[in-house]
Amino acid sequence: MAEQQQYRLKIDVFSVDSLPMARLAEYMAELAVLLGECERVHFSHMEKGSAVLVSTIEPVAFPKVEERVSRVSRGDGPKDAMQAFKKIDNLLAKDGAVATLTGPTVGQVIEFPGRTRPKPVKYGPFREVGTLDGRIIRIGGRDETIPVWLKDGDVEYHCNVRGEEVARRLAPYYLNGVIRVHGSGKWVREESGAWNLEQFDINDFEVLDDSPMADVVGKLRAVEGGTWHESDDALSDILGLRRDDKGRH
């Protein structure tokens, strides 16, 4: 009968006595995902000394587990395995630890950088000219800079208007229609890589037509001398024009 093979996850800052049970459970859960073949991979024990989680692999599952671990070590493993690798590494970074996963095959090692990985960097702020679309959900203030809040779906933008002239023209559109504001935004690139708009200064705006598409099609069909009324599917015709226009660029 073939012997069961083992994988060892060694975490440098913990011992058997110092690793909290709740944290151990988190490491074990992600390690199970990384190894795969969950029905045939079993937690065996923890070795004395540094915290070493020992997992045993049933012989029938070992070739698949070995291939999966090899792919993770190369960085091209299955999506769930790579996500588990990242989650283990995030746990290690929070614990100020590093770890290695070794298997029975010579040279098969996965290094988890944990605390030694480069710290994410925050960039900015940067100024960039642009536009924002949305509905005004709040406007007003007593200072020279007048705050305006725009909402586009679930996203809210905090904007400012300098001077009363543009603010007065904006006021009638409070909770009334969709506008496009022009100006410059202050952007920050967060540690996660996402861009965050901290502030947007409005210098002008335009009112957008937020009529339902059916109303727009109806208006087109009503244009004297036009041919839209002859089409059975004017909406598809409009979308076709948009595709053709994009194809010319």
Rank of each mutant, 00 (worst) to 15 (best):
G218M: 08
R8G: 01
E224Y: 06
V217K: 10
G49P: 01
D237P: 00
R138E: 14
V33H: 10
D152Q: 14
P172T: 09
F43E: 06
G75W: 11
L35F: 10
E156T: 06
D210C: 01
S192V: 01
S192E: 03
D209A: 05
G77K: 09
D152Y: 11
M1H: 07
Q4V: 02
A97F: 02
F62D: 12
L92D: 00
F112A: 04
M213N: 01
M28H: 05
G134H: 13
E224M: 07
V155E: 13
P104H: 06
T102W: 04
G218H: 06
P63Y: 12
D152F: 13
P78D: 15
D89W: 05
R127N: 09
D232W: 00
L208I: 04
S211G: 03
T145R: 08
K246T: 01
A29K: 15
R138H: 05
I238R: 07
R243E: 12
I146F: 07
R248L: 11
V148N: 11
D233L: 03
Q108L: 14
L132T: 12
H45Y: 10
L241I: 07
I110C: 04
R8S: 09
V65N: 13
V16Y: 14
C38V: 07
D80F: 13
Q108V: 01
R71W: 05
R127A: 09
V72F: 08
A97K: 02
A214D: 13
I139M: 15
R135K: 13
V41N: 02
G153S: 13
E47F: 05
L241W: 02
G140D: 05
P78C: 09
P118V: 03
E198Q: 06
D204W: 13
S184I: 02
E164M: 04
V129E: 14
N203K: 06
T116G: 01
E58N: 03
V65H: 15
L24T: 02
P104I: 00
K10A: 12
H182E: 03
R40F: 07
Y173I: 08
N160P: 00
R248F: 11
K10H: 08
E67H: 10
V181W: 01
M21R: 11
S18H: 09
G75C: 13
G130S: 03
G240E: 03
P63M: 12
V106N: 00
V65T: 10
V33I: 15
H182I: 02
D233H: 13
V223G: 05
S55T: 04
R8A: 10
R189Y: 03
V109L: 11
H158I: 02
F112H: 04
T116H: 06
K87Q: 14
V178G: 00
V178C: 08
S73G: 11
S15I: 07
G193T: 01
A25G: 14
E47K: 08
D215E: 15
G240N: 10
V54F: 08
G36D: 05
G240I: 04
D152H: 15
Q83M: 08
G107Y: 05
I137M: 07
H229T: 00
A51Y: 10
A84C: 08
E156M: 04
G124K: 08
V161H: 07
G124S: 05
L53E: 01
I139P: 08
N160M: 02
L92H: 03
D12G: 11
D210N: 12
E128H: 09
I11R: 04
Q4N: 09
D95V: 00
